[in-house]
Design a protein around this nucleic acid. Structure first.
Lengths: 225, 225
DNA sequence: AAATTTATTAACTCAATGTTAAATCTTGAA
DNA sequence: TTCAAGATTTAACATTGAGTTAATAAATTT
């Protein structure tokens, strides 16, 4: 099982990420600061470490620096969590031997797929990400370019629309309950009105084609082709 | 080898059933009352228990109740033996978690074939019950996709229809009383008229095939194939 | 045959979903 | 910083069809 260590000083974020990763079948450890993070990393070598940069006592940079000197962690991927406006840190983070950075706030779907992508990339050392492109029916979904094509026609989807569409498309036929959609696209900590999904579904139908998205009354929605 | 425990207070019947089942290659244990039955059931977990209802010390209902609370017997089928005129008991027996009932008097041929049918059905669901897909007869029930297929033909079921169908299909051969169906599909807090189930059953028969759903008049319904 | 239980049919009801437009929040450029 | 364009959410209202009921027919038991 893939072991993940998350280090962040905000308990809410820890819980949020832990919950979503465990649901995907990862073995998740958490730490509330850099020092605790290092101790836990030593007790069970993680495959991937998610480090918040801004932390008391010992920040993410420090933790990264220490880990990169230790051959124990040669095969451990290090990812940083950064707030959007700290983009200066991103460069420094990568210089220190980090493998990637993820900007907060992040939806659970994007987060887990980033983690999975990192693991995939690491394993296969394959530079291109062909598996980020889904072809189904007459549709082409390119996750990297955040783009959908139907036949030759480009379809512009907004971020939420795209995430929702990906969720449905990745398991064609599976019926997603509203609950499930909220959890996976919006996250457990966000509360939105109960017409929000309908509106997004409506836009998807309008843009992508209503024949692909089916309502199962009383249960939820599914992608079908 | 398939283990059967028969509990009845009449030694003649015990001997009669034991003789016939052993001739068919079953591993048969017998008990003369409920208490002895429970002790023997614990010493060698049976695949199927045949319980007479009217017994001294501890009747069949009691034995069933105790066994259904014990996870040891999760995979044990419980069948009741009832006299023809005790049909009031049949409903109670099924509500307690029994799978089927056999009315006395019964010919050895009918008896062994009933036992075999129950075992066959139980096994065929048991092997697939870990994932969300049930295959039975020419039917495929995919819970994730909320979909039923018969052969290659997709069958669209509404939510309640699907739930009801799943209930019946998950324990083929088990007779569900209306009470039980209401409790498990509608829930204890909902009260609906007593023709509602009939209508749903009718729709299921229309969509899935009437040969699969059998009425046990005065008692309830079961799935059979 | 009378009584009881289940089957069938069609009409009705309301909760779930669809639709629209306007309000609010985000983002990035000037 | 401010502003504008676009993205997202909310709210109000319309629509729909699954689920239920009720009335009647058919089957089964007594």
């Amino acid at each position: 099982m893939t072991k993940i260590l998350i280090v962040d000083d905000e308990p809410d974020i820890l819980e949020f990420l832990q919950y979503n990763l465990e649901k995907e079948g990862f073995d998740v450890q958490t730490a509330i600061d850099g020092e605790e993070g290092l101790i836990k990393a030593h007790s069970k070598i993680p495959d991937i470490v998610v480090l918040d940069i801004m932390m008391p006592r010992m920040d993410g940079f420090e933790v990264c620096k220490v880990m990169r000197k230790d051959p124990k962690f040669d095969n451990t991927i290090i990812t940083f969590l950064t707030a959007k406006d700290e983009d200066f840190s991103q460069i420094a983070a990568l210089d220190l031997g980090g493998d990637d950075f993820i900007t907060k706030p992040v939806s659970p779907r994007v987060f887990t797929s980033r983690i999975k992508a990192l693991l995939r990339r690491h394993k296969s050392t394959d530079s291109n990400s062909l598996d980020q492109i889904i072809k189904i029916a007459d549709l082409l979904i390119d996750k990297e370019k955040v783009m959908v094509k139907r036949g030759d026609r480009k379809i512009e989807l907004a971020k939420k629309e795209f995430e929702l569409f990906c969720l449905l498309v990745e398991k064609p036929g599976k019926v997603y309950t509203r609950e499930e959609i909220f959890r996976k696209v919006w996250g457990t900590d966000v509360i939105v009105g109960n017409r929000t999904i309908d509106v997004h579904i409506r836009k998807l139908r309008e843009k992508v084609g209503s024949e692909y998205i089916k309502t199962i009354k009383g249960i939820g929605y599914k992608f079908e082709f």
